[in-house]
């Protein structure tokens, strides 16, 4: 259920020079799928910040975010014991139960976090899971060990070749012969489009957009799809790849 909740910060630490992990105390029984998001209130900033859920257990919620402006900068300065306000239960998330028994999960940059919770859920459902993570450079990489600890097949690539394969997640996808495997992905738009074009399989893609309300009232984050207009915040952020009207 969507509610505005105050939660205690349990920890807030940098993972790279500009990516942080915040763990909040929270009764997460409202989460129904990985890839859902929360809208975080930032004092002094007018709108909330939509941030996808990376991981959760019964009592805590993990958010991984990149400092890209004033709002996320304020967020990065929070310390354990501070209180954050979040609007919960937003977005549809990855409906992993609709996916095939073998899946490839692809994350690019700050699109990596929701794929972690998705990987855990897929494993719980007994799926065979391949993970491909892409970053700009070695200094931007995070959560590799966490993914490996899940016991899944993890590959990494960087744009400049400083870590793993030099190139894009789609290069790794081809290299590893995963172009016929059901995919789930989150990352920049060009990456999502490249995955759609490279793969012969179907998949689920998580999109990003500037949002007003985050719960479907303002129509700020609408997109056109084959089956009609959709709100990224309600009918998304996860869409079926075949439903997307790809622009040139």
């Amino acid at each position: 259920m969507k509610t505005l909740q105050k939660c205690k910060v349990l920890s807030n630490v940098p993972l790279t020079h500009d990516v942080y992990r915040m763990i909040l105390e929270n009764d997460t029984s409202w989460i129904h799928h990985p890839g859902q998001f929360v809208n975080v209130t930032i004092e002094g900033q007018y709108l909330k910040r939509p941030i996808s859920i990376c991981d959760w257990d019964e009592h805590s919620l993990t958010l991984i975010y990149k400092v890209v402006g004033k709002g996320t900068e304020i967020m990065s300065q929070k310390i354990a014991g501070d209180v954050m306000e979040i609007l919960t239960d937003l977005g549809n998330g990855f409906h992993t139960e609709t996916a095939a028994n073998e899946v490839v999960l692809l994350g690019g940059g700050v699109g990596v976090p929701p794929m972690f919770g998705t990987a855990k859920q897929c494993l719980k459902e007994g799926k065979k899971v391949h993970v491909i993570l892409g970053f700009a450079s070695k200094k931007d990489a995070f959560y590799l060990d966490e993914f490996k600890q899940l016991g899944v097949d993890v590959s990494v690539c960087t744009n400049d070749g400083t870590l793993g394969t030099k190139g894009f997640v789609t290069d790794v996808m081809k290299e590893k012969g995963l172009t016929d495997v059901f995919y789930m992905a989150c990352g920049p738009l060009p990456m999502l489009k490249a995955i759609y074009q490279t793969s012969n399989a179907k998949g689920l893609l998580s999109f990003e957009e500037r949002m007003g309300c985050g719960f479907g009232a303002c129509m700020g984050c609408s997109c056109k799809t084959i089956t009609g207009y959709k709100r990224i915040c309600v009918e998304g952020p996860v869409m079926e790849s075949e439903d997307i009207l790809w622009k040139d």
């Binding site: 007018y46 984050c221 997109c223």
Partner: peptide, 17 residues
């Protein structure tokens, strides 16, 4: 459908839509 996105920009004590 309306206009292309982005359709929202935050401002000091307000927003543009």
């Amino acid at each position: 459908y309306g206009n292309p996105t982005p359709r929202i920009a935050e401002c000091d004590r307000g927003m543009i839509n």
